[in-house]
Simulated scan of single mutants.
Amino acid sequence: MRRWPYTFAVVVSVAIGTTAIVSARILDLPIRDPDGFLGPSYVRLPLIVLLFFAAGIIPTALKRYGIRGFFGGVVRIVDEEWTWKRLSYILVGLSAFYACYVSYRNLKSYLPVVREGVLFDHRMLQLDHFLMFGHNPATVLHNLLGTGAAAHILAFVYVSYLMLIPLTLGAFLVWGRDLSLGAWYATALSLNWVLGTISYYMLPTLGPAFAQPQSFLELPDTSASSLQRALFRAGAGFKEDPTGNQIYGIAGFASLHVSVVLAACLFFARVGLNGIIRWSAWIYLVLVVLATIYFGWHYIADDIAGAAIGWISVSLGAWATGNRGRRRRHVKGNSPAEEIGAIPDEVQPAAAGASETGSRTA
């Protein structure tokens, strides 16, 4: 099954896609394409890939052939280095990720219909107070970090996740010399959506900001609070008319912000990316965890469950793509594109057909 590194990802995407379609038919609800920061996902994700494609080819063509030979150089580079196999892997990875993401967003939207009236926020609030020795964790952070500059910094970190994850996926799919690494990362991210959907239905919650909004009234207006208001309006619109244009997006357990970012951190460490990139990712994770509690997106248990989902996704993705137990040696002195592709030959994955060692990375 693992001779082709995308077998598992395709199976998972078909499974959750079928689940979303069947659920929509049973509930008599539409399947919607969730809009993102730069428009619909089916526009945003291919655009990201095209940008990375250009970033990988244009500088190389200018360096090798200069301005006069630029266009001929681009054609030559594409012909020599961008095989149909490489392009097909990018397409499959992008499609699997997109299918899982759209299915996850729609199944999440059906949550208040399927689990109507079932919420565990009160118990989660009690658990938070128990873990913090009788204190509200959000209030503790407000007092510790303040409600000025910290609020705007954490808001930027939280919202930036919406673009950083697709960007990192595009980087590994397009720039990666070892094609199984792109498959591993795409599979891990896809699993986050699937496992996150399951966690929503297992333990439905709204999150502190929606269950106990009075604890966050002192916070300034930020991009995070704007996003919360938008989600509240969309959620109210969905409950008023589930067949309308609104998509429901409020769910606390588990935190997929934490799960996806932790999955990225673990993956970056396993493949041996540049130390600056790895440490930046871990610092970003810490800030994301703080933001989830600070703004009341999640309870402490949500973040713990999210961390578990992230670890499971990376580990299962490694097994499914033939990368289990692999440790990549960091290669110093490379550009970001070369850093992703510079995997020594002796540590290439053993899965047949998973690697394209003959291509060069721009």
Rank of each mutant, 00 (worst) to 15 (best):
A269K: 12
R270V: 10
V271M: 09
A269D: 15
V289T: 01
S280H: 03
L285R: 04
F267S: 07
V271K: 05
L266T: 00
V286P: 01
I283K: 01
A254H: 08
L262C: 08
F268D: 02
L290Q: 07
F267H: 13
V286R: 04
V271A: 02
V258I: 14
S255G: 10
S280A: 13
G272S: 05
V258G: 13
W279E: 02
A264E: 15
L262S: 05
R270W: 10
V258P: 13
A263V: 11
S255Y: 10
L256I: 14
A264M: 15
L273D: 10
R270L: 07
I277V: 14
I283T: 06
S280G: 15
A254Y: 03
V258H: 13
L287W: 00
L290H: 10
C265Q: 01
A254N: 12
V288H: 03
S255R: 10
W282F: 14
A269C: 07
L285V: 06
A263R: 05
S280P: 06
V258K: 11
L273C: 06
V258M: 14
A281V: 07
V271N: 00
L273T: 00
V286G: 08
S255E: 04
L273P: 11
N274M: 12
S255F: 10
A263L: 07
A254C: 15
I277R: 09
L273F: 13
L287D: 04
L266H: 03
L273S: 08
V260K: 12
R270I: 08
A269Y: 14
A263M: 07
F268K: 01
V271E: 03
